[in-house]
Nucleic acid binder design. Structure first.
Ligand code: FES
Ligand code: FES
Lengths: 144, 144
DNA sequence: CATTAATCGGACAAAATTGTCCTTTATTTG
DNA sequence: CAAATAAAGGACAATTTTGTCCGATTAATG
């Protein structure tokens, strides 16, 4: 469904959101540890998220990654997915035709679009804040 | 969503189904031509489908691939997807945890499972026959 | 029985994704 | 200002996925 990079990206963003709620800024090392991901690869992904303004980074001692509390409600999953995997998941044809096209649809078009639309709505409506709070109260996990 | 191999596999299977409805057996070359896919790679995928009894193959002159008319209604997309991509799409965690686990869910679990379940139902209920008939009447396309 | 047409299967090649390492840049602190 | 710390970024390596090639196998046909 999502690329590995995107999976790590979402897990990292949720962890950063959680820590930012407590006013903590976190390092790549801590993030990779807490979400159980390869450190250097995670660093690359965080760079992407930072460039795309999904998260905020600060260099130097006491630096690290954070997410502004005020942004958190408006930061939806689809922004992370778009930043990392692009919009193929939104516009691509389920059977791999050049593009999904209503006028010359593949045999699966109608059924595929229905599910893709649900997925899009889910990603567009789910905020990092929402996901972070589930973590906070111990209902959900970022590693196992 | 699906791998390239799986996309080609579904397109190929639908084309074979369509031709089988007209009593024709088709070669890899014809299939690859009609669904616009790399020939040798398509051949590999057809082997997989053949081994998994999704399609039937006949060697030698006049040989090729076909699908029994009697099977066609019962041949659902999920069999193709399982044969080629395995069941990761059915049991995998959306955020990449080792496995999807109700008891120690990732933050996205509930929302992800809802969509994954819809997808599963769609794949389990959609038959090759159904997809082939749409092609037959010119409503849908396998290449563009 | 020889020829030919087709899939099967293994080895290989190319490309994309995933992952690592190391140097540079920015920032804090003493 | 010097040292230490952390992200940025570029080059490279490993793995997986995608794709190719070619000989072996099977079956039909004259
Ligand atoms: S054309 Fe294939 S999903 Fe729309
Ligand atoms: S645990 Fe992540 S989707 Fe179920």
């Amino acid at each position: 469904m999502f690329s590995k990079a995107c999976e790590y990206g979402i897990r990292a963003a949720v962890y950063i959101a959680l820590q930012s709620l407590e006013g903590r800024r976190v390092s790549v090392n801590e993030i990779a540890e807490e979400i159980d991901s390869p450190i250097a690869f995670t660093a690359k992904i965080l760079q992407q998220l930072s460039r795309n303004k999904v998260i905020h980074s600060v260099k130097g001692p006491t630096g690290g990654f954070e997410i502004e509390r005020t942004d958190m409600d408006n930061l939806k999953l689809n922004m992370i997915v778009k930043a990392i995997d692009g919009d193929q998941i939104y516009v691509g044809c389920g059977l791999g035709l050049k593009e999904c096209n209503e006028d010359k649809p593949c045999p699966l078009h109608d059924k595929f679009v229905a599910i893709r639309t649900d997925l899009r709505h889910m990603l567009e409506s789910t905020s990092l804040y929402e996901l972070a709070t589930g973590l906070e109260v111990g209902l959900t996990y970022l590693k196992r």
